[in-house]
Design a protein around this nucleic acid. Structure first.
Lengths: 82, 82
DNA sequence: ACGATTAATACGCGATCGCGTATATTGCCT
DNA sequence: AGGCAATATACGCGATCGCGTATTAATCGT
């Protein structure tokens, strides 16, 4: 279940999905990454203003990693799902 | 050439690599994404404080996408390269 | 339907962003 | 070595972050 992400909203939605999958609440995840529940909320809602560090901390806490790669044509179909 | 990224520094280095590969300078990329050359510089240097929107704009301008996925054990070996 | 957990939003604060502009500093090429 | 392009830093400014704390609003299970 690897999620392709091109926008802040997609990124937020993806993180939320992984968080829930791990049975975490915004509060518990926030504690893991030393951030407030409100901050997690903003990140997941796809606010572009959020700091990069918050994203990195979330990835670490959720045991996720990023792959950066050229955009794939195939992915464009999937994009609609968001 | 898909880059695995777990830290802000790795992310910056990866973006720089892709930018150069496309023959762009920080200035020209900055114009594409409506940001200053200095902002691109900060992003590539891996400053965690950079805003998420800047990253997204850079990905768009460079025609890149992100894949979010569980951390792979194998990737840990490669990590040292950074 | 109702209480309880979870998520979204608010206020004031200090810190820091990206901005325009400008100036070091570095790196490359002949 | 010299000169130019590319990158890193700096200043002041307005905007916005994440923070602590708290309060709505939404979601869930029974």
């Amino acid at each position: 279940m690897n999620m392709i992400v091109r926008t802040a909203k997609q990124l937020g939605a993806t993180l939320r999905r992984y968080r829930r999958q791990k049975g975490l609440t915004q509060l518990s995840l926030g504690k893991l990454m030393h951030a407030r529940q409100a901050t997690v909320s903003k990140l997941e809602s796809g606010e572009r203003g959020t700091q990069l560090g918050v994203l990195i901390d979330a990835l670490t806490a959720l045991d996720l990693e990023l792959v950066v790669r050229p955009r794939s044509r195939a992915a464009e179909d999937i994009e609609e799902l968001f």
